[in-house]
């Protein structure tokens, strides 16, 4: 005769399996990182890959011009970072946002450029929306083209990363949605004519075909907030900085594509 198990055995077994599967979830969820590049049309890919068609490259040229201008104190970026920025270390650029010891807080690449602009060239601070800052960021991020995103989220960075992560899962606006719903749960699905990507940041600053404009990450995020009918945050707010830490770290391992082309 077959051995009889009590219903409790089955229930216990069910919960045991469930627990194991639940603990595997993070691995399953983040198994595969896919760049936004894989979600755009062949035509858009061609534009991104062609240095002459990709409008991002003229922005890089502008960036180099600004990089070579002298500051209020007659100092130039190139005095410390080399001709055309050839002393920048790609691996180091790929680590932004990172912890800045003097400021004692995390800085994005924009924050760092702003810091050198003001402290080392003694220039008047740039607005975070300024196209000069955008051009410098594009030019410097491009130095790390092909390098893998590698944000350190340990020790001092940890609380900021955690805050950014919580933000990512917070619902916003009249549309009452969070980032994860579109960029984790429904990745690959169509939102009208747009295929939802994983929402990575490895292409920023990037050229948007929709608005025919080069944008940095906070500018893109502000668009998202508008479409969620939510009150947005300032470009250099702690909220967006923390979110940038989370988003970049979430894409750790993806290759930097700046300047990318997207919708």
């Amino acid at each position: 005769m077959r051995k009889q198990y009590s219903p409790f055995t089955y229930i216990t077994f069910f919960f045991l399996i469930n627990t194991i599967l639940c603990s595997l979830t993070p691995i399953i969820l983040h198994a595969e990182l896919i760049s936004g590049y894989e979600f755009i049309s062949e035509q858009a890919k061609e534009i991104q890959n062609d240095d002459f068609q990709n409008p991002g490259f003229s922005v890089i040229e502008n960036g180099l011009d600004i990089y070579n201008e002298v500051g209020e104190n007659e100092v130039q970026c190139s005095n410390c970072h080399g001709l055309n920025g050839n002393k920048f270390i790609p691996k180091s650029i790929a680590q932004f946002p990172k912890f800045h010891e003097i400021l004692d807080k995390p800085v994005t690449l924009r924050d760092q450029i702003q810091y050198c602009w003001v402290e080392r060239l003694e220039n008047f601070p740039l607005l975070y929306d300024d196209i000069q800052l955008l051009a410098l960021e594009t030019m410097i991020r491009n130095k790390a083209f092909g390098e893998k995103v590698n944000v350190d989220i340990n020790e001092k960075m940890k609380p900021y990363y955690e805050a950014g992560k919580a933000f990512y899962f917070t619902r916003f606006g009249q549309m009452d949605m969070n980032c994860s719903q579109c960029h984790d749960i429904y990745t690959g699905q169509m939102l009208r004519g747009q295929k939802l990507s994983q929402g990575h940041t490895n292409g920023f600053p990037l050229f948007r075909l929709e608005s025919q404009k080069m944008v940095n990450l906070p500018q893109r995020l502000r668009e998202c907030f508008r479409s969620l009918r939510a009150e947005t945050f300032e470009q250099n707010s702690d909220e967006f900085r923390n979110l940038e830490i989370y988003l970049n770290a979430r894409g750790n391992g993806l290759k930097i594509e700046t300047p990318a082309v997207r919708y």
């Binding site: 916003f172 009249q174 009452d176 907030f225 508008r226 009918r229 939510a230 009150e231």
Partner: peptide, 12 residues
């Protein structure tokens, strides 16, 4: 109910 939403834009 709009009171259930978070950070709804002032326009809405």
């Amino acid at each position: 109910g709009p009171e259930k939403m978070n950070r709804i834009s002032s326009i809405y």
